[in-house]
């Protein structure tokens, strides 16, 4: 199977969104794998080489943020967030779709405005040259990344997410 065929077979998304989904998930997957290796290397180094990996804590913290926010657009447009479904049996599928639109609007708007503030905080942190303890890495970059990924999530939810909700839902 060619690489392109594998990706197409792997993702339920349509059109160019497939490649975006693959790219975002690739970032998350690689980060998570490196996080696992990092912890193992740190513990191994501490016991057998008497020297742990400097800044493991900082790298771990950054890795979680990178992984979580790389996945955020994908899980959001797929409707992967936890919903209380106690009343589903009493609601028709049309009503559920309408409520889905309301939720999509609320999620996108709130993420957009929140990300504006997150980005401002990132810039402030960079201006004050705040860095991590051991690696002296500017903390503002990770925060900027969180803001940008939140914007991407908001944009894709209100466009592709709504399209998917209206035309591609299974039922």
């Amino acid at each position: 199977m060619t690489f392109s065929a594998w990706v197409t077979a792997h993702y339920e998304e349509k059109g160019p969104v497939i490649w975006l989904a693959f790219f975002l998930e690739l970032i998350a997957a690689v980060t998570l794998f490196l996080l696992m290796m990092l912890t193992c290397a740190d513990v191994f180094g501490r016991y057998f080489l008497s020297n742990s990996v400097d800044g493991t804590t900082e790298l771990t913290e950054m890795a979680i943020a990178i992984m979580v926010f790389a996945e955020m657009p994908v899980i959001t447009w797929r409707g992967g967030h936890v919903v209380v479904d106690i009343l589903d049996r009493m609601m028709g599928s049309t009503l559920i779709k309408i409520l889905g639109l309301v939720a999509a609007f609320l999620m996108s708007t709130s993420l957009y405005f929140l990300a504006v503030r997150i980005f401002e905080l990132a810039e402030r942190s960079l201006r004050r040259s705040e860095v991590t303890e051991f690696l002296q890495f500017p903390t503002g970059y990770v925060v900027e990344y969180i803001a940008i990924m939140s914007w991407i999530t908001a944009a894709l939810m209100i466009s592709y997410g709504v399209y998917r909700l209206l035309f591609l839902s299974r039922d």
Binding site: L35, I64, F113, L114, R117, I118, L121, V143, I146
Partner: peptide, 22 residues
């Protein structure tokens, strides 16, 4: 907004929560 933004920023970078994905 800052209150909410700081919760997002800090929680998604909290070392102790790395147990969840791992």
């Amino acid at each position: 907004l800052s209150m909410a933004a700081k919760r997002v920023i800090d929680t998604s970078q909290e070392y102790g929560l790395s147990v969840i994905p791992l």
